[in-house]
């Protein structure tokens, strides 16, 4: 869908994130890393992708298209639609989101707090892209999956005691997947749910300046089947 070379850490977390996507789901992918998710889904997983600029049934990128093409994704890239796709206007697009018909939103993050708050739309004075549809996706998707590098550029964990940046939505993140670990929000608090085989519990919590409890039984990182 999008084109750039992925790092091995990104490939690792994308493959793990793909396991969260279930057959039959309606899914919205945020701009950036989430757009690489479809290529990691098993071929028999039938997923309907929602594009908030006005359609469901988004398919692959369209290499023959341009930003002037009649079908673009929310990031402005030309793409294709699958048979059964439907186009609509912005009102219908967000009725799908707010009305509870979006099963999963896969989003990026600047910060996720231990209580599941998400900050991903604004770094005051530096980066102000605007929230676009992000607040509604974060607040109203039936499940919010954040995928992110484990550490930010300064070596600080993306999972923080409290977000320092303006929130996209409070207490919205259901699952956070990094290249080292899976965290799930249980009883209002993020807990360690799975650890990549290359890491132990200590390194899976590296850079995280907060008390993160472990699930009673950690999930296996990969399907054993």
């Amino acid at each position: 869908m999008a084109k750039r070379e992925l790092t091995s850490a990104e490939l690792t977390l994308l493959k793990r994130a793909a396991r969260e996507v279930r057959h039959g789901m309606v899914v919205n992918l945020g701009i950036g890393l989430p757009q690489f998710l479809p290529e990691h889904l098993p071929a028999d997983t039938d997923v309907t992708f929602h594009s908030e600029n006005g359609f469901v049934g988004m398919g692959e990128g369209n290499p023959e298209g341009t930003p002037d093409s009649d079908v673009i994704d929310a990031g402005g890239r030309a793409c294709r639609v699958v048979p059964g796709a439907a186009f609509f206007d912005s009102l219908t697009s967000f009725a799908i989101v707010r009305g509870g018909n979006l099963d999963l939103a896969v989003l990026g993050a600047f910060e996720v707090s231990v209580s599941g708050d998400l900050a991903n739309w604004k770094i005051p004075g530096k980066l102000t892209p605007g929230m676009g549809g992000g607040m509604e996706l974060a607040q109203k998707a039936n499940h919010v999956l954040v995928i992110s590098h484990h550490l930010d550029k300064r070596g600080r964990g993306k999972l923080v005691p409290q977000c320092s940046l303006p929130l996209t939505a409070p207490a919205c993140v259901g699952t956070l997947i990094t290249e080292r670990a899976v965290f799930r929000r249980v009883d209002g608090r993020m807990q360690l749910a799975s650890v990549h085989p290359d890491f132990d519990r200590e390194s899976a919590l590296e850079g995280i300046d907060a008390d993160v409890p472990s699930a009673e039984n950690l999930e296996p990182w990969e399907d054993k089947s």
Binding site: G76, S93, L127, T128, P129, G130, M131, G134, E136
Partner: peptide, 29 residues
């Protein structure tokens, strides 16, 4: 709702040259 594809305007806004109000996209609609 979103101005991320126009870095020049983000600068204008941050420098106070143009007022900008950002609204969540579906609520904007």
């Amino acid at each position: 709702t979103h101005i991320g594809l126009n870095p020049e305007f983000i600068r204008q806004m941050n420098d106070g040259e143009v007022e900008c109000e950002l609204i969540p996209q579906g609520i904007f609609a």
